[in-house]
């Protein structure tokens, strides 16, 4: 897990430190490549406006994730992206011209997982992404999404079930791990 400590809340430094994290999280939260610049910009503009609220540098990461979760959710709710092409297509495009077999398989897995994640409601998707992919502690996940710990756990378990169902409906990957 990437950890970023900042001794001062200098926005330029925060941008440098958190831009890769924001881009990664937004992708996992369903923001497509073509919209990534716009949504990431919104995240940092919002973060800039909240600098005065952040009392401790240690709290910055949660703020950043929280803002990213909200903007990703807003983005997904907009009518014109509702019928989104899951990110898998983007992932395949990013694979390059002559990928190795292992890369093809990894891309296929990511694409499939993206499609399954896209079926989850935003609140469950956020908890699952933050816990299972970003691997944040559950306490921080609850803080980011603004719910009690028990609610965060409930969302995680529900998200896991829905994810498993969505994956089974998508069918197995050829050459997969089964």
């Amino acid at each position: 897990m990437q950890t970023v400590a900042t001794s001062t809340l200098d926005f330029g430094q925060l941008f440098r430190s958190y831009a890769p994290l924001v881009l990664r999280a937004l992708r996992r939260l369903g923001v497509q490549e073509r919209d990534l610049d716009d949504v990431a910009q919104d995240v940092f503009v919002t973060l800039h406006g909240k600098l005065g609220e952040i009392e401790k540098p240690e709290a910055v990461r949660s703020y950043v994730y929280g803002i990213a979760v909200r903007h990703a959710s807003d983005h997904r709710k907009r009518a014109h992206v509702r019928r989104e092409q899951p990110q898998g297509d983007d992932a395949l495009e990013r694979a390059g011209s002559a990928p190795q077999l292992s890369e093809i398989l990894a891309n296929e897995r990511r694409a499939r997982l993206d499609r399954a994640l896209a079926t989850l409601p935003d609140d469950k998707r956020a908890v699952l992404v933050l816990y299972e992919i970003e691997e944040l502690p559950m306490r921080e996940v609850a803080e980011i999404v603004g719910v009690p710990m028990q609610t965060a756990y409930s969302r995680l378990y529900a998200a896991r079930k829905e994810l498993a169902l969505a994956l089974s409906e998508l069918g197995p990957i050829e050459g997969g791990a089964r």
Binding site: R28, A91, L105, A106, N107, R109, R110, R112, L113, E132, I133, E135, L163, A164, L167, P172, I173, G176, A177, R178
Partner: peptide, 14 residues
């Protein structure tokens, strides 16, 4: 599920 674990690994490694 091994396939799910592999997919999560793939996503983390991207």
């Amino acid at each position: 599920d091994p396939e799910l674990r592999a997919s999560l690994d793939a996503m983390r490694d991207e």
